[in-house]
């Protein structure tokens, strides 16, 4: 875990009888995107709030560039966050005013806050709305502004709780592109989302939290390779006669529309033998996606 920008060790948080977060340890290194996944109520937002020092853990510690943000708030200079279910910005101010305000509140001086605000608005295509009060902006624009608000002081660590929620396709893609660019520029990003395809597209590493416990943290590529294993997908031109189907089942073939076979390449030949001479449409090695991984992990945890 050398030179991690954000580190958390053994976080515990209990709300009354509910243990919302149990023994969570995470680290974010420069240049990486960590997808933080979990079902509703799994403890993602709670963890994000602890990491951003808005919620005090019962146990455990957070280090932001080596400093404890609970004791030394100046460490927050290096953190930006989009918080879930919040407006994150002032409705009665314009995007430009919001960014200047938050820029200064995060430690920039007025002149550089303004300069950076204009540059960001330009970059994210919000310049023409720079002078319109936020309450008159569309939801997607507000969400985009929430992201800019987290970026205004150019922090090293970004915690994004559902940043693509409610964005249209184009804007979501823009945000994804920007997230990649930020990671390339050496920022460390944590991203929670229920859109697993977004996570799959962006993540370098994946962490899955289930009932307050991190049940998996792994490099994304390795994770997908591990879960792909020896699975094959078979599709036929028409449904097989019952006798063939019975033989397939005996060989352990699952599924209906596309059939799924778990086994190695040799065993696959037995399946193909059983299917002969029915016309095949497709035989392919199954690729795992994050959705499948996710369902398996939280299903078995």
């Amino acid at each position: 875990m050398e030179n991690a920008l954000l580190e958390a060790h053994g976080l515990h948080k209990r709300f009354g009888a509910l243990e919302a977060v149990r023994n969570v340890s995470l680290s974010l290194r420069p240049g990486e995107v960590l997808a933080f996944l979990g079902k509703n109520g799994a403890g993602k937002t709670t963890t994000v709030k602890i990491l951003s020092s808005l919620l005090l853990p019962d146990r455990g510690e957070v280090r932001l560039l080596g400093k404890d943000p609970f004791k030394d708030p100046w460490a927050l200079r290096h953190l930006g966050a989009v918080l879930e279910g919040n407006r994150n910005v002032y409705w009665r101010l314009t995007p430009l005013e919001n960014l200047v305000y938050f820029g200064v509140a995060r430690g920039l001086c007025l002149a550089s806050a303004r300069k950076r605000a204009l540059a960001l608005l330009e970059e994210y295509g919000l310049l023409e709305k720079a002078q319109v009060e936020v309450r008159h902006l569309s939801r997607g624009m507000q969400q985009k502004l929430a992201l800019l608000q987290a970026l205004i002081h150019d922090p090293e660590v970004l915690l994004l709780d559902e940043p693509t929620l409610g964005l249209d396709v184009e804007t979501a893609l823009l945000v994804q592109e920007k997230v990649r660019a930020l990671a390339r520029a050496g920022k460390a990003l944590l991203l929670t989302t229920h859109q697993l395809e977004v996570a799959e597209a962006l993540a370098d590493r994946v962490a899955i939290i289930h009932r307050g416990e991190v049940v998996l943290v792994e490099d994304k590529e390795r994770l997908l390779a591990r879960f792909a294993g020896n699975h094959y997908v078979l599709e036929l031109e028409s449904s097989p006669p019952p006798a063939v189907l019975a033989r397939l089942r005996a060989l352990g073939v699952e599924g209906e529309g596309p059939f799924l076979f778990r086994g190695d390449g040799e065993a696959l030949w037995q399946v193909l033998e059983a299917l002969r001479p029915l016309p095949l449409r497709r035989v392919a090695r199954a690729e795992a996606d994050l959705l499948e991984v996710f369902l398996k992990v939280v299903g078995h945890a």
């Binding site: 808005l54 953190l79 994150n88």
Partner: peptide, 14 residues
């Protein structure tokens, strides 16, 4: 209520 308070609390000034 409007959800800006948490952002305000993220100020490094405290």
């Amino acid at each position: 209520q409007t959800g800006t308070l948490e952002q305000v609390f993220l100020t490094p000034y405290g």
